[in-house]
Amino acid sequence: MLKLEHVNKIYGERHALNDVNIAFPEHKTTVIVGPSGSGKSTLLRSLNLLERPENGLYHFDDLTLDFSKSIPEKNILSIRRQTGMVFQSFNLFPHLSVLKNVTEAPIHVLKQSTAAATSTAKDLLAQVGLADKADQFPTALSGGQQQRVAIARALAMKPKYLFFDEPTSALDPELEAGVLRVLLKLAQEHNSMIVVTHNMEFARGVADQIIFLEEGEILYSGDPKTFFTEPTERIHEFLSAMNFMVKA
C-alpha cells in the first residue's frame, strides 16, 4: 500500500502540494486530474522520489519515510525498483535497441540472466504488439510505438505500482488509441496503477479512484462515478473546460 500523509512541496512562493493526504490502493487504478500546474505531476513524481517534498510522511508497505529528514539512498533505490514510471516524452534510451531498452534494468538492477531477461522482454514486447521491432533502435519507431516500448520497459521490472505521467499527451489521436488500449488492459488485469491524464473519457473508463487537484490541494478523491455525474461547481467548470459533457 502506498500512502502520503500531510505532504507539502513548495517551489519558491508556490505551494505545489498542499497538505496532501491520500492512499493508493493496490490492484486498483487511481487517476489524477486537474488543471495545468495544479501539481499532478509533482504528486506522481513524489511517489518515486524524483521530487522531494519538504515535509510529510511517505508509506510504502512497511516502509515509512519522513520527507523532512534525509532519505537513505538504499530506501530510494528500493522504492524505485518496486515502482515503474512511464513519461510523457517516452525517454527511451536511444543508443540501445528496443529489446535492450527492456532488458537493461532487469539485467543490471535485478541481476537477471541475459537469457531470462530477453525471454521476458520478448513476451512483453509481444503483449504491446511490437514483437517484430525488438532489434530496431527507438528512433525508427512512431511515438505510439515508443510509448508502448516504454510501458514494456517499466513492466519488465515487475513493479508493484505503475506510474503514468500524461502518457498520451505527446501523441497524435490515432497513435493515442494503441497506447490507451494497453493501459486499459493493464488496468483490467488489476495492476496497481496511478495515471495522470487530461483525457477525461479515458479517466472515466479506467479509474477505480479519482483525484482532483487544484493549486496543490486535493479537492476531490474517491468514486469516479460521483465525480463525473454529480460534480461540484468547480469540478463541473473544469470538466466543461476539458470539453467533457457531464451527463447527469
Binding site: 539512498e73 524505485r80 525498483r81 514510471m85 513519461f87 525517454n91 534510451f93 543490471h108 516504454a150 517499466a154
Partner: peptide, 15 residues
C-alpha cells in the same frame, strides 16, 4: 529525461 528514466528503473547514479 534520460537520467530520470534510468533512475526510476532503480539504477544507481553511477550505473
Amino acid at each position: 529525461g534520460q537520467w530520470e528514466a534510468a533512475l526510476t528503473l532503480g539504477m544507481t547514479r553511477r550505473q
